[in-house]
Amino acid sequence: MAVPKKRTSISKKIIRNTLWKKKGYFTTLKAFSLAQSIFTGNSKSFFCNKYKR
């Protein structure tokens, strides 16, 4: 028979939510930083051709 689980406290819910949002924020920062370095040509870890003919 199914037993109902205890409810998660609001503070735990808020903590998990902020951690989830922070993870996305840092991922976007990394992506933006990589895009900037590629655009300026200063990238050392990513190779791409700027001019395609």
Rank of each mutant, 00 (worst) to 15 (best):
A31G: 05
N42A: 07
F26Y: 15
A31I: 05
L19V: 04
T18Y: 14
F47N: 06
Q36A: 14
T8W: 02
K13G: 08
N49E: 09
F39D: 03
I38R: 01
Y25N: 08
I15S: 11
K12W: 03
S37Q: 06
K12H: 04
K21L: 13
G41N: 01
T28C: 12
K23S: 08
S33K: 06
Y51G: 13
F46L: 06
F32T: 04
K23A: 08
T40S: 07
G24T: 15
S45Y: 15
K44Y: 11
Y51P: 01
N42K: 05
G24P: 01
L19K: 13
F46N: 11
I15C: 03
G24K: 15
K22V: 10
R7P: 07
W20C: 03
S37T: 02
N17C: 05
F32R: 02
G24D: 10
S43Y: 02
N42V: 00
C48N: 05
I10K: 10
F39V: 01
L34P: 01
K21W: 11
S43W: 02
T18F: 12
K13W: 10
K12D: 14
I38T: 01
W20V: 04
G41Y: 02
I14T: 13
W20T: 12
S11L: 08
S11R: 01
L29T: 04
A35H: 08
S43I: 01
